[in-house]
Amino acid sequence: MDWGSILENTLRGFVGEQAIYFALAAIGLNIHFGYTGLLNFGQAVFMAAGAYGLALTVVYAEQSFWLGIFVGLFVFPVIMALILGVPTLRLRADYLAIVTIAAAEIVRLFLRSPKWDSVTGSSDGLGQYADTFYEFSPFEPRTRYGFGPLNFLGNQLWVVIIGWIVVAIVLVIVATLVRSPWGRVLKAIREDEDAARSLGKNAYFYKMQALILGGVIGAAGGLMRAIGTQSAQPDNFITDVTFLAWVALILGGAARVFGPVIGAMILWGVLSFTDTFLRQAVDQDIIPTSIMEGTQVGQVRFMLIGFSLALLAAFRPQGIFGNRDEMALDDR
C-alpha cells in the first residue's frame, strides 16, 4: 500500500476541483431545499445548462468566452428554471421532485440525440472552448505546484483557485440573502406556504426566484466543471450527479450557509480515499480479483454513496454537524 499517494489523493479530493463543482451544486440545492423547501432532484440539469451555455456559445455560435459565461450563468439556467417552475411550483412538493428528475433525464437524452449532433456534438459533447480562461493563468500549465503532499498542475491550480474564489463570493451573497427579509420569506414558505400566503407573501413568486437563484448557482458549478475539463458531455450530468450533490448537502447540513461546502469537501475526500484505497488493494491482490475487479471500484463507490445517503437521512437528517433545533431534513 502506498499510503503517500492515498493521502495525496484524499487531500486533493478535499480541496480539489470536484469539491468545488459539487459545493456550488449543493449551495444551489441549499437555496432550493434548505431554505425554500423545494425538492429539486434535477440539479444536474442546471449544471448542464451552465456547461452547455458556455460550450454552445463558444463552439456552436462562435461567440466570445465571456458571452459564453454570461449565457451559461444567466440565460440557460434561468430559462430552465422557468420551464421547470412555471408548471410545478403551484403544485405539491413531490410533483416538483418528479418533474425535475424526469426533466434532467430528458434534457440529457436530448443532448445525446444524434439528431442534433451538429449542434450539441451528441454523446461526445463539445470541447476546447475555455482557452481564454487559461490564458489568464499565471501558472505554467505543465508545472506541478504544491506544498507538502498536495500539488496541482498549473492549469488545475488556476481552476482550483478561481473555483474557491467563486465559492467564496457565492457564500457571501447567500449569507446576505438568507439573513435578509427576503430570506425570511423563503424560510416561511419552507415552513408553511399557506401561512406565508395568508400574510400577503406571493409564495409562487418567491419559489420561482429561489429556483432561479439555486439554479444559477448550480449552473456556476456546471460551468466551473466545463471550464476545468474543457469538455461538456451529456453523461457528465446523469441523475447520479444530482444525488451526489444531495449527499453533499445533507452531509454538511441543509439550511446552513457553510453546510454544503463542508459536505462537498468531506464527500470528495472520502470518495477519493476509498477510490485510491480500493484500487490499490485490487491492484496488489489484497482484494482478490474474484471478489472485485478494477472496473468495479467505481461501482463500489456508488454503493457507498447510496449507503451513506440512506444512513444520513435516517439517522442524522440534520447533517453531521447539524443542530436539531434548526432546519433538519426531518421536519419536512
Partner: peptide, 26 residues
Amino acid sequence: LSKMTVMDNMKLGAVGQKGESFWRAL
C-alpha cells in the same frame, strides 16, 4: 413557522418591508 424564532414569525407579518425584494435584500 416552527423553525423560525417567534420574532421572525412576527416580522414576517409586516407588509411593505422593502428588503423582501430580491435585489434590495442584497
